[in-house]
Design a protein around this nucleic acid. Sequence first.
DNA 1: ATCTTGACTTGGACTGGGTCCATCGTAGGA
DNA 2: TCCTACGATGGACCCAGTCCAAGTCAAGAT
Lengths: 136, 136
Amino acid sequence: MSDLLERLRGRGWRLTSQRRVVAEVLDGDHVHLTADEVHARAVRRLPEISRATVYNALGELVALGEVVEVTTDGRAKRYDPNAHHPHQHLVCSGCGLIRDVHPDGDPLAVLPAAQRFGFAVAGADITYRGLCPDCA
Amino acid sequence: MSDLLERLRGRGWRLTSQRRVVAEVLDGDHVHLTADEVHARAVRRLPEISRATVYNALGELVALGEVVEVTTDGRAKRYDPNAHHPHQHLVCSGCGLIRDVHPDGDPLAVLPAAQRFGFAVAGADITYRGLCPDCA
DNA sequence: ATCTTGACTTGGACTGGGTCCATCGTAGGA
DNA sequence: TCCTACGATGGACCCAGTCCAAGTCAAGAT
């Protein structure tokens, strides 16, 4: 965490109390919060922080590659701080629970050249869907 | 297409001109329109059709398994009539172009039991990302 | 061919998620 | 400690989608 703040400062990020709080809220590798959830938690530490500031900070963290956006449904985007370990997501169709998962092999390997249509394919986002133990 | 309308009628779908037009607009296997795009095209054939009706019809087609919803970004959902041939999507990060693709093997096979956390995993949605020939 | 009725359509209000912007505040270099 | 450009604020605004009360009509019954 403090190394995150260090990295950001090293990249010229001006370190404000608001940005610090947003980064702290996202601390922990297995969190998948919406922007509003991040805002709600940030407000507990810094009551005046605005929604716009949370959106700005999240957008910057994504642009800097420190956080990844996850869209598992058509609803609110979720922000995943586990950005330095490539992974995929397993989502419960019942309750929406999200787990980070690591499938075997390279996801791009299964897409043959003939199926790439001349694209320079750079990555793959996989969402596995099913029922979690509690919902089954 | 007419077989689609037949299938729907067989399932008790009341066949209105609005529903017929929505189904016709979605005809073709490689179309990925947003609800508003479907509405815009439907209006050309049936000027009074309302947005709410298009949303209703699309929702019903999805519930009946005739169309699948595709969410490749956090923006508007897209509706894909190619529902009877399982496939994945390849999306251009530049212009948003979407192609249906067929990766090798079963996408679920690469998720080992130890990575399933007790979930009853039922499916996987894969979005391959890269630049299309025009954008590269 | 007409009637009847419950399913369908309409459009306008409303909601949730997100962005924009003019103004104010402040981190951090000089 | 002072300056100033970068960041924060909150309220207006936008887009995608849902809801609802009232009107319409497909299709089975007569």
